[in-house]
Design a protein around this nucleic acid. Structure first.
Lengths: 255, 255
DNA sequence: CGGTACATTGAAGGGGCTCAATCCACGTGG
DNA sequence: CCACGTGGATTGAGCCCCTTCAATGTACCG
């Protein structure tokens, strides 16, 4: 068995797929492609007949308004899908740009849907993966809509730490921040200037430590409390086993 | 052929499914259930083995933070899925509450994934429908993260008008607002008080007219320009025909 | 050495919030 | 019929969080 891909590691952490099933998922890839930093993986307005899985690097999905304001919708990490939901429409709804050198693997739609006939558990898994993407949007919406700037930054740091740890790209309490402060601002609906101030405050309060791009969480408990972080990313993203029709599932109960 | 369900109307507007395929999708429903106003359709923390389709009424998906702040993630209209992404996790991530009397139809996971074996076009369609849900989150995130209060309210009114028209529940320029101003605030990351002020301003500027719950758009062009609305909901949600492997699709091109 | 990109910090202004009073529509029971 | 309560909408006054504008510092790189 080869070493697990980032996607495989993610699935191993949050699902009960067998090693064979994990391998089947990695088999969906056809060609892989490398992309330089600052190049588009998906370009708004174009048409696609595949989704992609990010194997390596970091990308951002974003939209710019007519006057230049930018909202970053999501940070794409290794193991995440590139092109959901953008690729499913007549023309892609958003651009996705690599912010480091990156590598992606293509999964053509034909192959994706074809695989469902043989392996329904795979279909369920892909649905769940897409649910995760949608749930991350929802979490971000809560963050931006109803939290203060300090809470947003704290929450974002914890989200990134958690996601990077799952795919083996972070230590227990520290990670390398792949984004500039202005990009963090565009994620959180803030200005880069204010992100700087909030990071400063988190440092002054000894909740985090910053050394260059390296960020270390110094007081996980206090930071989680500040960000109201407990309920979301840590335990609740596990895939429901009700998605697997193979097992004798509980009956549907209506009223 | 029976009259189309709200879901059927939505699909007819944005996809190229045949009448037979539309009927097959409606066939996925098993039991239907009616729910009184202010009752949960999905309760956070519980486990489910089905998704639901809203047949009638209006519901909201939301999360409350520990101190009572609430963010409404989405407004669920007839034809929308209830339970994506909440139901795909070990325990539901969000609550979904009916804000009017409502009716839902259940689609058990077993039935959903089972249908993929026979009809791959159905699988593609469901993927696309979920993409729409995710895209609406993304649009809302842009709205909340990077637009002023006035722009947010304008955008939301146009979004609602568009969505209601697709399912035949709005006139060309007017509709009945199913939400209170405080609920609108919880969607847009504002206070109800401020929503009132912004509606007042839109009225003073003759962009909209309000009579009780009835809202009429008086100057579509100006309102769309204010909200930067053109590119999103109107044309771009069409399903890509690349999702249909039946047709001889274009080849995947990787450099 | 100069140029670029990013981070940091200060001062001032404004957009949205908080608190509060008032109004209105509606339902309920005396 | 009116008194009363309730939920929602409206409007005002004051404040604070975040933005804007700007200057400075710093690392990196041609």
């Amino acid at each position: 068995m080869a070493a697990l891909s980032p996607l495989g590691r993610k699935l191993a952490a949050w699902t009960s797929l067998s090693p064979g099933e994990l391998a089947a998922l990695d088999d969906l890839h056809t060609a892989t492609r490398t992309v330089a930093s600052n190049r588009d993986l998906i370009t708004e307005g174009y048409k696609y007949d595949a989704v992609f899985v990010l194997l390596d690097g970091v990308a951002i999905r974003y939209r710019v308004l007519h006057d230049g304001r930018r909202q970053i919708l999501n940070v794409v990490l290794p193991g995440d899908f590139v092109g959901f939901p953008a690729c499913f429409f007549e023309t892609a709804l958003y651009s996705i740009t690599a912010i480091t050198a990156a590598a992606v693997a293509a999964i053509p739609f034909t192959r994706l849907f074809g695989s469902f006939e043989n392996t329904p558990r795979l279909a369920a898994t892909i649905f769940w993966l897409f649910s995760c993407e949608a749930a991350m949007y929802a979490e971000r919406l809560i963050n931006v809509g109803r939290r203060s700037a300090l809470e947003r930054v704290a929450h974002f740091l914890l989200e990134l730490l958690t996601r990077l740890r799952v795919i083996g790209l972070a230590e227990e309490f520290s990670f390398r921040m792949p984004l500039t402060q202005e990009q963090i601002g565009d994620i959180l609906g803030l200005t880069g200037v204010h992100v700087s101030r909030m990071l400063r405050r988190l440092r002054d309060d000894a909740l985090i430590a910053v050394e260059g791009q390296q960020i270390a969480v110094r007081d996980l408990k206090a930071l989680s409390a500040l960000a109201d972080f407990d309920r979301t990313y840590l335990t609740h993203f596990r895939m429901s086993d009700a998605l697997f029709p193979a097992r004798p599932g509980p009956r549907l109960d209506l009223d």
